[in-house]
Design a protein around this nucleic acid. Sequence first.
DNA 1: GTGGTCTAGACCACC
DNA 2: GTGGTCTAGACCACT
Lengths: 136, 136, 136, 136
Amino acid sequence: MFQLDIGDHRPLYEQIKEKIKFLIIGGILHDGDRIPSVRELAVDMTINPNTVARAYRELENDGFIYSQKAKGYFVSPRERIEKGSRDELTVRFTDAARELMYRGAACEELCEILHNIYKGGTDHGDVNGDGRIEEL
Amino acid sequence: MFQLDIGDHRPLYEQIKEKIKFLIIGGILHDGDRIPSVRELAVDMTINPNTVARAYRELENDGFIYSQKAKGYFVSPRERIEKGSRDELTVRFTDAARELMYRGAACEELCEILHNIYKGGTDHGDVNGDGRIEEL
Amino acid sequence: MFQLDIGDHRPLYEQIKEKIKFLIIGGILHDGDRIPSVRELAVDMTINPNTVARAYRELENDGFIYSQKAKGYFVSPRERIEKGSRDELTVRFTDAARELMYRGAACEELCEILHNIYKGGTDHGDVNGDGRIEEL
Amino acid sequence: MFQLDIGDHRPLYEQIKEKIKFLIIGGILHDGDRIPSVRELAVDMTINPNTVARAYRELENDGFIYSQKAKGYFVSPRERIEKGSRDELTVRFTDAARELMYRGAACEELCEILHNIYKGGTDHGDVNGDGRIEEL
DNA sequence: GTGGTCTAGACCACC
DNA sequence: GTGGTCTAGACCACT
């Protein structure tokens, strides 16, 4: 499904959260899609099920997925995700933009990036950031 | 100059790096400005000089400041900072933008944030992110 | 594993970095190999663990090794190392070549050196540059 | 004549030596050319004449320049420079090549660089490595 | 006084 | 046991 980045010092569950989030945001996983069970993913990635469980639990808290007893985890409807707070996200966006500006990026450059993102909303793109696009 | 947040789980030297970076990007510290000496800042913040030294050393590696023996640390000329790779930064920007889009932010909204940033390039604003503006 | 040269004016951590780099480039340490723990190497060379830690940390920044908490340091997969910028390295190569040319070295001479290097890619050779070949 | 690199941690006299060497090797300064007097260069670069003097003295020891009392320093005839030891230089060349190989550079790539250097022997090029070509 | 290096020793989180 | 952070204090070279 995806690969964890060796050399990434963040806890495993954080990386899993991020990857799943990217799959949802990138349009690879859609509303209502079932995601692999805790055990499946744990086996698949040869890590502890508890780690996967924690990632899923936090994703559920953030509204990205929801669980149905004895059925599994599913991607939340988009309206639900939208409700989440955008504050921290906006800070991250602004900080990155400010630093890019300081480093000489033109406003038009950044705006174009934005337009490309909005234009190709459901483009899958390079989910892992490692130059490959992997299948589910 | 600024205060460290105990309760922030990140290492002290990371927090120092971030603060200094914000002071530079925010336009409070300018090209060639001398920043507090390792010992000064250590006393000021009642932490160990080694911790400050590490923060400064890593900021130097990132190109934001440079050191001159027996003189001190100085803010790098902006051209030097601009030379640094913008790749990682652009990824951060794009990721944040994509997630904001997914959460329902309009393209115009984000563009306006950008324009505000570029308009008020030298505005100092809330450097510490804690609601206060402190003097040097 | 190797010996540090007292009398070498460079800092100890720089010497450690160089030695490890040579072991990796020279093919003695391979992808995924675990290198001695910070404490082991410190005891082995009768220097302070902090000094070893700094060397390892900087090698990690340069992409040559990566750390896993509670496990140790490991040689990075080669693809990771290849990703690093070759610009600075190319400048060093070119500068040396230019000076050699100016001092009368023939192009064929240098090309032959190159071919020997590429031919004996995994030859271990004199890793320490001190005329001895040491075992791990 | 040239600019010293702020943020370069080597002693000033080392940097001056390097720059002069590049000017000679790059073909900008030729056999018998007079180089600026110690005092001239010191004033020009607003540094201590002793620093310049040391650089010149070491360049003279290395055979790159020679002094004539009351006349100044002059670029040595090329035959004289060729006599200098190529050992250390060859090590630098080999080390850089080995690391480039490890990082994925093809042998042909490096050979081409060599051929370009030998083809354009007297090309001046980017002496300071900062993208500019400066006049004497 | 400055930065830079190194030592010694402590504590934490992780596994 | 491992890496990671932090403190305390020393010494050096430089200006």
